[in-house]
């Protein structure tokens, strides 16, 4: 007579599964690589000497001093961040309408200067505002929302549709935020 096969208790199966689940939830670190993406200019020695004069009207000057005070086009900025984004957008898309503002989006340059004493927090806050202006413009031109645009720009080669939208959004408008070497007043 064969011996009866012993039963495997299955009441605790759920407990085990749950325990493992909790364990993996706790130990898995979600890689959070999100942030503001910029491209650095080539090494200092590889750059041609700076004798190219950019007309004043094609420059939008944003400055932060060592006390984190914001200067826009030489004047202290009192408006909100959204207003600054709008001002940058207006400058880039001026297309020669206002003779004192930029000639065309290709020629427009947003110059962003900081000081060695500026805090990183403020630097990021203002950089965020400036980048928003460009991303909004690209998104508008491609006919998508800002969130969608940033998703496309993060990986333009993902699908042919993305590639097409990316081309459409970027057309004729270079991403021209120039971050200058900080001045040495503070810090």
């Amino acid at each position: 007579m064969p011996r009866p096969t012993p039963d495997i208790p299955n009441a605790s199966m759920a407990d085990i599964a749950f325990l493992m689940l909790v364990f993996f939830l706790v130990t898995t670190t979600v890689a959070n690589i999100k942030g503001l993406s910029i491209g650095l200019p080539p090494p200092p020695e590889a750059l041609p000497p700076e004798d190219i004069k950019i007309p004043e009207k094609n420059l939008f000057k944003v400055q932060l001093n060592s006390f984190d005070n914001l200067l826009v086009e030489g004047e202290p900025w009192t408006g909100s961040n959204q207003e600054l984004t709008d001002a940058v957008k207006k400058f880039i898309l001026n297309n020669g309408r206002d003779p004192l503002s930029s000639d065309s989006p290709e020629k427009a340059i947003v110059s962003y200067k900081t000081d060695r004493g500026t805090s990183h927090k403020k630097f990021i806050e203002v950089l965020d505002v400036l980048q928003k202006a460009y991303y909004d413009i690209y998104a508008d031109q491609a006919g998508v929302t800002n969130d969608k645009w940033r998703e496309i720009a993060s990986d333009p080669k993902k699908t042919p549709e993305f590639e097409q939208l990316y081309e459409k959004g970027r057309e004729g408008i270079p991403f021209a935020i120039s971050i200058a070497e900080p001045t040495k007043v503070g810090g």
Partner: peptide, 20 residues
């Protein structure tokens, strides 16, 4: 941070992301 950026330029690692 500017010092770090200068060195990164010299090292030709020019793609940068400020984590936020």
């Amino acid at each position: 941070i500017a010092d770090v950026e200068t060195e990164l330029r010299k090292a030709n690692a020019r793609k940068l992301l400020y984590s936020t």
